[in-house]
Amino acid sequence: MKKVLLLTDFSKNATNAISYAMQFFASKTCTFYIMYVHKVGGYVSDDLLMSPKNSIHDSITEKPKTKLKALIEALKTDNKTKDYQFEYVIDYDVFTDAINQAVTKYAIDFVVMGSNGASNVKEVIFGSNTINVIKKVNCKTLVIPNNFSFLPVNEFLVSLNADDVIDTDLLENIIDFIEGFKLKLHVLRITSESEQPNLALKDKERLALLDSKYHLIEHVPVDYAVSSYLQTNTIDITAFIKKDKSFLNRLFNDSPSKELTSRMKLPLLVLHCH
């Protein structure tokens, strides 16, 4: 059974990500935990002061609980033929702290969220909550672009920069994903002139038992290489390796906005490797 944490702020983007998850995991037996995290500061002090002490918690959770229950009933109705169970989770804590607690408590396999939240600023590709989840939540995270409609997932692209090594941990993550969802693996290795010349040879040794398409690209910026590959190959979902700070530097600092926008036309799976 897969345990999936679906994050929602009740926005259109969050609802779309949940809809994607319903179809992406359709072949699996799943328990979905639909989670809403609210800052206590979002409630004015007068509201809390007017409530008896023993009902402060109820005052904070009443509205989101009603919305979550309605959402779950709708999902049950729409997914009657699937082997799904639903639970709701409400927390009022630091956003990523609440998620990390849920990931541990419920032994979550995947976190699913939209690339942007309720604010939905067009110029912002990743909302602040999404960035914080990628940075601070140590769990496979599936980020769904705004307004992305589900398409059958067959082709999976993993791009590797110089500091991404296909070690046992990463290889197990890749194998688990492609075998679990019956995907064709594409591996794109981007290197520069100063990097280890036998990197590709080591990659191929680790990938020898997998049915994969391997491509080595030299002396090309990573985001340009990925964007070009996506234009010339049919890819349904991309993956990036979150390891130390290199991933974040590439994704949020070094990436030209044009290439990043192109990349985020597809769902993004963030793999956390130690």
Rank of each mutant, 00 (worst) to 15 (best):
T232N: 15
P221G: 01
N249K: 14
K182S: 15
V222K: 06
K242L: 09
K63P: 01
F110G: 00
T77N: 14
F150L: 08
R250G: 11
D58F: 04
V165K: 11
P221L: 03
S115N: 13
E205V: 11
F25Q: 02
K122Q: 14
N129C: 10
D93G: 04
F110H: 02
Y92I: 04
T96E: 13
T261P: 11
K213C: 07
F240Q: 10
T234M: 07
F32S: 00
L5Q: 07
A118N: 14
L207F: 03
S19K: 08
V270F: 09
V89W: 02
A98L: 12
S257D: 15
S212K: 05
T232G: 12
P64A: 02
N138M: 13
Y33K: 05
D169M: 01
D244I: 04
K53T: 10
Y224R: 12
R189A: 06
V270S: 08
G114P: 02
K39S: 15
L183Y: 04
Y229H: 04
P152K: 13
T66A: 14
D164L: 03
Q231V: 04
N249A: 06
V37P: 07
F240D: 05
T61F: 10
R206K: 12
A17N: 02
N161G: 14
R263V: 10
I72V: 15
Q101M: 09
L5K: 09
L266I: 04
L271D: 01
N138E: 14
V153M: 06
D83P: 12
V112E: 00
H272W: 03
L188E: 01
I90D: 13
A14K: 03
G117P: 07
E172I: 09
A208D: 12
L160S: 07
C273K: 14
D236H: 13
P152R: 13
Y43E: 14
L271W: 01
C30K: 00
T31R: 03
Y214K: 02
F181Y: 12
N13M: 07
V37G: 05
D91K: 15
N120I: 05
S159K: 00
D93A: 11
L49V: 11
L6R: 00
V220I: 15
N253I: 09
A14G: 09
L75H: 03
T191M: 14
L71K: 08
I56T: 10
F247S: 05
S115H: 02
L68Q: 08
K12H: 08
T232L: 06
Q196C: 11
K3R: 11
D167V: 00
K122C: 05
G127K: 03
T77Y: 08
F24K: 00
M35N: 09
K202C: 05
L269H: 02
D109K: 09
Q196F: 06
A14F: 02
A26K: 13
V187A: 02
P256K: 00
P64Q: 00
H57S: 14
N129H: 10
F25H: 06
G180Q: 09
T130H: 02
N116H: 13
L68K: 05
N132E: 14
T31K: 03
A118G: 09
L216C: 06
V94D: 07
I190M: 10
N249C: 05
K65C: 10
N116S: 15
